[in-house]
Amino acid sequence: MKQFLLGLCLFMTVGLSQAEAQKYFTREGKISFYSDTPVEKIEAHNQKATCVLDVASGKMEFAVLVKAFQFEKALMQEHFNENYMESGTYPKSIFKGQIANAADVDLSKDGTYDVTVEGELTIHGIAKTVSTPGQITVAGDKISATAKFETQPEDHGIKIPSVVRKNIAKIVEIDVNVALEPFKK
């Protein structure tokens, strides 16, 4: 009996570690956004995004804390948090989706693969379905991924007063850059 249990435990541990080896993760992802108009250039950076990628299924998810975005100007950061993103009420922005062509990515071979990412982008509490091109680079047991999203503030229920509407781009570009490592406990 003891031996059977031991065997079972061993079997489960092996099984688990194999399942985990498929998952990649980081808590130091970089997300930036850019709004470029003739009136004003606005950009903000966040280096504390989390990202989890399950290579087998191609499912991926990343999340970011809105208040951790750093702006060059304090006033912009204040307006961003208080008037537009209402980050006290909606502290996180989340993307949940998958790599549409996950089968094209060969983890055993170093190289750069073009991918398409599809899923739901939730900003300001409002989810929107998006599809965007990205790249996955495999180097040994590390994977880095980049993607560019384009989104409109109005799509996420963000109201911008008409007086300052021309200061903020109609389409805001979001850059995602993550270096992932195998997930292990």
Binding site: R27, V64, L65, K67, A68
Partner: peptide, 10 residues
């Protein structure tokens, strides 16, 4: 700034 997997202070 809140919590994702960890609590984050900037």
């Amino acid at each position: 700034t809140g919590m994702l997997m960890d609590v984050v202070l900037v």
